[in-house]
Nucleic acid binder design. Structure first.
Length: 297
DNA sequence: ACTATTTGACCGTG
DNA sequence: CACGGTCAAATAGT
């Protein structure tokens, strides 16, 4: 329930606020810090073994992230309106997104989000989580991109992913990734729809040979190259190893505990899990081959 | 050769 | 009618 937000949109702000650029910039900076902290908090919360408790905490964190993201978005758009688009971006990769002056036909910021449901003839409420992160791919799941769409008043397109095991395990999990800003550490709004059913299947398939009973919550550790328009992102994902075959992919290992101290958070800009750590996880993963189990429906 | 990604069209919803 | 989400054929990367 917490993941749902009221329909109250942010102020339309058709007129530029008299706030100075520096001020806006400072606020944006603070918001980003807050977003980072929220992200770290989310990662910590994800380690909570108890399902219910973790879920509730995640929902709260999602709310925080969403609020921060909304504020950030508003400020960003405001600043872009103040500035002239002549500055463009540092790289030519994002060139194609020339926002052609917000048309007056419909409110720009108004209909930010809406139909999250589809084909649900029963009006079933889908579990939706929104998080703001700098590493939209490193969530420990295997995602497969199936679409990309330019969103109305957004500077960056939205990328559509679905669980890599959606075919084999009918996993309904999906996620939308949308870049929020052009900062050096670009932020991405990640919308997670539906829970993974694949991760629930894998742990039960562990071969009896492995004495280590890594029960509790286990997640698929996989990495998908998310081709994001941001060159920064591309560089980040370049260090990520590529998958071989889905059948060779292993699952069911618990995620490493990210040890973030608040000191790191406040001093360094990004103590997020480094690609090296993820790579190590990958190697660990390959030690535990997944047994093909088709004892499903 | 195989698989993931890209990209534009199509379709449903508001 | 416009927008957002998904499909699916074509393409690229390994």
């Amino acid at each position: 329930m917490a993941t749902r937000r009221p329909k109250s949109e942010m102020s339309p702000l058709p007129e530029p606020t008299p706030a100075s650029d520096q001020r806006v910039d400072a606020v944006i900076e603070e918001l980003r810090k807050g977003a980072q902290l929220a992200e770290f908090l989310r990662q910590q919360v994800e380690l909570i073994p108890e399902h219910g408790r973790r879920d509730a905490a995640l929902a709260n964190v999602s709310d925080i992230s969403t609020a921060l993201a909304s504020s950030l978005s508003v400020l960003q758009s405001e600043r872009e309106q103040l500035y002239s688009p002549s500055s463009s971006s540092s790289d030519a990769g994002v060139a194609a997104h020339a926002a052609p002056a917000f048309g007056a036909r419909n409110g720009p910021v108004a209909r930010a989000r809406r139909a999250k449901h589809r084909r649900g003839s029963h009006g079933q409420e889908l579990p939706i989580k929104e998080i703001l992160t700098e590493t939209p791919e490193n969530d420990g799941f295997h995602w497969r991109k199936y679409g990309e769409k330019k969103i109305l008043n957004a500077a960056f397109p939205r990328l559509y992913y679905r669980c890599g095991y959606s075919d084999e395990h009918k996993c309904p999990a999906k996620k939308y990734v949308q870049q929020q800003d052009n900062g050096d550490p670009p932020l991405f709004m990640v919308t997670l729809i539906n829970d993974h059913t694949c991760d629930a299947l894998f742990p039960a398939e562990q071969p009896p040979g492995s004495s280590s009973s890594s029960s509790a919550n286990s997640q698929v550790l996989d990495f998908t190259k998310a081709s994001i328009s941001s060159p920064t992102m591309a560089a980040a994902s370049a260090a990520v190893p590529r998958l071989k075959k889905e059948e060779d992919v292993v699952a069911g290992m618990s995620v490493t505990t990210p040890s973030y101290t608040y000191d790191e958070l406040s001093s360094s800009s990004l103590p997020l899990m480094s690609p090296m750590q993820w790579e190590m996880e990958m190697e660990m993963k390959s030690l535990f081959r997944r047994q093909d189990a088709s004892s499903g429906s």
